[in-house]
Amino acid sequence: MTFKLIINGKTLKGETTTEAVDAATAEKVLKQYANDNGIDGEWTYDDATKTFTVTE
């Protein structure tokens, strides 16, 4: 399955996707991606669209 991350950061905005077997696995990968890029904020997840959003 494809999961999307929408980034609403102070210095970085955009989106990325990852392939994962489930939402929990995708969340780990996407949170690591955000952490690697210095993004720390509030996370939400929409199961209907398989989209995570992080807002700083």
Rank of each mutant, 00 (worst) to 15 (best):
T55Y: 08
A23L: 09
K31Y: 06
T17Y: 15
T44V: 09
D36Y: 07
G14M: 15
G14S: 13
T55D: 06
N8K: 12
K31A: 05
T44C: 08
I7F: 13
A20R: 03
I39Q: 02
Y33S: 02
K13L: 08
N37I: 15
G38K: 07
T55Q: 06
N35F: 15
I39D: 01
D22N: 09
A26N: 00
Y33A: 03
D40G: 08
T49P: 02
D22T: 05
N35Q: 15
K4E: 04
W43Y: 02
W43R: 00
N35C: 12
T44K: 10
G9Q: 06
L30Y: 04
D40T: 14
A48N: 12
N37Q: 13
L5C: 05
V29E: 08
K31P: 00
T11C: 15
V54C: 06
F52H: 01
Y45I: 01
G9M: 14
G9Y: 07
K31W: 06
N8Q: 10
A24L: 11
T11M: 11
Y45A: 01
G38M: 07
K28V: 11
L5S: 01
F3I: 03
V54H: 01
K31D: 02
F52D: 00
K31N: 04
L30H: 03
E56I: 13
M1R: 08
V21K: 14
D36A: 10
E27W: 14
T53N: 04
T55V: 09
L5K: 00
A20L: 03
D36L: 12
V21I: 14
T55F: 08
K10E: 09
M1S: 12
K10N: 11
E19P: 05
E56N: 05
G9L: 15
K13I: 11
L12E: 07
K31L: 07
I7C: 05
E19R: 13
Q32F: 05
T51M: 04
D36R: 09
E42W: 12
Q32N: 07
D22Y: 03
V29C: 07
D40E: 13
Q32T: 07
D40M: 14
L5Y: 02
D40Q: 15
T44E: 09
D47W: 08
D47P: 13
A20S: 07
Q32P: 02
I39N: 02
T55A: 06
I7V: 08
V54D: 00
N37G: 05
D22A: 03
D47E: 14
E15W: 14
G14W: 15
I39H: 04
T18W: 09
V29L: 13
G41C: 02
K13H: 11
Q32H: 07
E19V: 15
T17A: 08
F3P: 01
D47A: 14
T18Y: 09
G41I: 02
A23Q: 12
T25L: 08
V29F: 15
K10I: 15
I7Y: 12
A48G: 10
A24K: 12
L5G: 02
E56T: 09
T55G: 04
G14N: 08
E19N: 13
A34G: 03
T25S: 11
T53D: 02
Q32Y: 04
T11Y: 14
W43P: 00
T25V: 09
G14H: 14
G9F: 13
A23D: 04
T55S: 08
T25Q: 13
N35R: 15
T25W: 07
D40P: 05
G9K: 07
T17S: 15
D47I: 09
D47N: 10
G38Q: 07
I7L: 07
I7Q: 02
K13M: 10
E27G: 06
T49F: 05
E15R: 07
A23R: 13
G38R: 06
T11D: 10
Y45H: 01
Y45Q: 01
T25H: 13
D22H: 04
K4P: 02
G14D: 10
I6F: 06
T16D: 03
V54L: 10
A20K: 03
L12H: 14
M1F: 15
G38A: 07
K31M: 10
T16H: 15
K10H: 12
A34N: 03
K10R: 13
N35W: 15
K28R: 13
A48M: 11
Y33W: 15
G9S: 11
I6K: 07
T44S: 12
T2R: 13
T18D: 02
T18V: 15
A48F: 10
A48C: 07
N8S: 07
T2S: 09
D22I: 03
T17Q: 11
A23S: 10
A23C: 11
L12C: 14
D36H: 08
K4T: 14
T11Q: 10
T16E: 05
G14E: 12
K28F: 09
E27L: 15
M1K: 12
K13N: 09
K28Q: 13
T55P: 01
L12P: 05
D46H: 06
D36C: 07
N8P: 03
K28E: 08
N37T: 07
V29S: 08
M1D: 11
T44Y: 09
T16V: 15
E19T: 14
N8F: 12
K50C: 07
T18Q: 04
N37S: 09
F52N: 00
F3N: 01
A26M: 02
D36V: 09
I6E: 04
V21M: 14
L5V: 04
L30K: 00
M1Y: 15
D47H: 11
T16W: 15
V29Q: 13
T2P: 05
V54R: 00
E15A: 09
E19Q: 14
E42C: 10
A34H: 01
D40C: 12
E42K: 10
K10G: 08
E15Y: 14
G41S: 01
E19D: 10
T17N: 06
T44Q: 11
Y45N: 00
T53Q: 07
A23M: 13
N35S: 14
K10Q: 12
T49I: 07
L30E: 00
I39S: 02
T49Y: 05
G14R: 12
V21Q: 12
T53I: 08
